[in-house]
């Protein structure tokens, strides 16, 4: 059940992230064509583009954490022995997770404030709070992901950099999780099921 949930969540994140980028391109290109060929400017292009950037940035927090793609300065971490590495990971994943949950809380408070004050986007007049809700959601997914990293490191002997990436394993290209994975998820894992 847990696994099914994780796979479904990944799939959901992947679809949002991927199609947001495609939509960005479509809107910008459409705006150029409309203005240059039909002399009609899309006044909403800017705000749609900005909204999509917000969506990609924050909805990507959890997914990037899962793929161990967040940027860090690993100089000292790379030098220390494996048993200390594990301790590093405990501290990093727990503190990061707690920080992100706190940011989730602040984010939801802010969203509520914006909803009360009723700000809208300039051209399409979409309520701003709808768009920025992705910010606390993004931090929430990030917080969950780092909590999972913490837990999996307690349960397993290997050093998990993220819930999906073990230290020393070659990195894999980011790709859509296959729909099959959802059904056969047990076989596809490295045999260390949660």
């Amino acid at each position: 059940m847990n696994k099914l949930f994780n796979k479904t969540l990944s799939k959901f994140e992947e679809i949002i992230l991927s199609y947001s980028v495609i939509l960005m391109a479509v809107v910008l290109i459409g705006s150029v064509i409309s203005r240059s060929l039909f002399n009609r400017s899309w006044t909403f292009a800017e705000e749609v583009g900005q909204s999509l950037v917000i969506i990609v940035t924050f909805m990507g927090i959890g997914y990037a954490a899962k793929k161990a793609k967040h940027i860090s300065m690993s100089a000292i971490f790379d030098l220390v022995k494996d048993k200390y590495k594990k301790m590093f990971i405990y501290v990093i994943s727990s503190v990061t997770s707690i920080s992100m949950f706190y940011l989730t809380y602040l984010g939801f408070q802010y969203v509520q404030k914006v909803q009360q004050l009723g700000r809208v986007t300039p051209a399409l007049r979409i309520p701003m709070y709808l768009i920025i809700t992705v910010v606390p959601i993004g931090f929430l997914l990030g917080g969950i992901e780092y909590a999972r990293t913490f837990i999996i490191n307690i349960k397993e002997k290997e050093i998990y950099l993220s819930s999906e990436k073990i230290l020393g394993q070659d990195h894999e290209e980011i790709s859509f999780s296959e729909p099959d994975d959802i059904e056969h998820s047990h076989e596809n894992e490295t045999g260390k099921g949660v």
């Binding site: 199609y19 990609v56 940035t57 290209e173």
Partner: peptide, 21 residues
């Protein structure tokens, strides 16, 4: 292939833009 390429674009973008934010 496009959704696949867009996904990897999005992950890289997110990793960079959270730092800008």
């Amino acid at each position: 292939d496009f959704p696949q390429i867009a996904l990897s674009t999005a992950v890289v973008t997110s990793a960079v833009f959270v730092l800008v934010a």
